[in-house]
């Protein structure tokens, strides 16, 4: 273990470590703590310059109600869900099939196709922007949630394929061979053997994709424009223009927008980190 376990060090080091730990976490999360406090203050409190003190008035319910009552926040949240969930299902589904093919069949061009999926996944969004926007307008999908669903599904398929292929490649070949000898079709092998075995990877990947899509801002600006279809990231940014210096509302809105991926992260932490660090230990 490195560094040396703190239990084996001097008493002084041990105590300093225990003091330093909460202190660093406090500093690290200071901007966030401040915004949480701000979201429950009254405008008078903010104007009086009370940032650190106890709120003069607790406006928790008032501020958060106002965010939902006076703006389209509820609609934005719903749109984000309607976009994110289908993308998660479609991209992971398509990628599991493609990943299986790339992992367990030997054919010419296999490495090249795999490389295209990986490389495409890293390109800057701007190189895709104009053609994708044109295509979306031509197909009549511009300013609908389908514009975002289809694009995100297509783009995330690259990352998902890389992920699933690397997971499936580790499954034992004998399993597939013995099924083939028993006369199972390739599709049966996929549904009966591959799908049950990749379940842990599916969980990890789904959480990651949820976060990526929920937090997307660029495509939300480029492919949709009306309040009825805007996801929360674009929504918050539009609301900031209206609220100007009403920091208590901006803060409350931001917290509402950040909450779903944060909850998901804390609920599925192990999967999330396993997904994110795949490749950090080998390769």
């Amino acid at each position: 273990m490195f560094p040396t376990p703190i239990q084996q060090t001097s008493r002084f080091t041990q105590i300093s470590y225990k003091v330093a730990l909460p202190l660093t976490i406090l500093i690290w999360l200071l901007p966030l703590a401040a915004i949480m406090m701000t979201s429950v203050r009254s405008i008078a409190d903010i104007n009086a310059g009370n940032y650190w003190g106890w709120p003069e008035q607790w406006m928790l319910i008032e501020n958060y109600t106002e965010v939902f009552a006076r703006t389209n926040m509820g609609r934005y949240l719903l749109n984000s869900v309607l976009i994110t969930v289908p993308v998660m299902i479609f991209s992971v589904g398509l990628a599991t099939m493609a990943g299986f093919a790339l992992a367990k069949y030997k054919f010419r061009g296999r490495i090249a196709i795999f490389a295209v999926f990986i490389g495409g996944n890293f390109v800057p969004f701007q190189i895709l922007m104009i053609p994708v926007r044109d295509l979306t307008i031509q197909t009549g999908l511009y300013d609908t949630i389908w514009a975002l669903i289809i694009f995100h599904t297509a783009f995330q398929t690259g990352f998902c394929t890389l992920f699933m292929r690397n997971f499936i490649v580790g499954l034992p070949d004998e399993l597939f061979e013995s099924c083939r000898l028993e006369g199972a079709s390739e599709w049966q092998i996929f549904t009966k053997i591959v799908l049950p075995l990749v379940r842990p990877a599916l969980a990890a990947l789904s959480v990651l994709i949820f976060t990526f899509i929920w937090n997307d801002y660029f495509w939300a600006l480029v492919l949709v424009q009306s309040d009825e279809v805007r996801p929360i990231t674009a929504g918050i940014s539009a609301l900031r223009g209206q609220w100007l210096a009403s920091w208590q509302l901006i803060s409350a809105g931001s917290i509402v927008a950040a909450l779903p991926p944060v909850i998901l992260f804390f609920a599925m932490q192990r999967h999330f980190i396993a997904g994110l660090t795949l490749g950090a230990t080998k390769g």
């Binding site: 790339l102 296999r110 295209v116 495409g120 190189i127 295509l135 297509a154 398929t157 394929t161 390739e186």
Partner: peptide, 22 residues
């Protein structure tokens, strides 16, 4: 042909929305 059939939907989408636009 089997692996190509498995890859077809992913490849099509990825080609239309990522590779060709480049």
């Amino acid at each position: 042909l089997t692996p190509w059939l498995f890859m077809l939907p992913a490849m099509l989408l990825f080609a239309v929305y990522v590779i060709i636009p480049i």
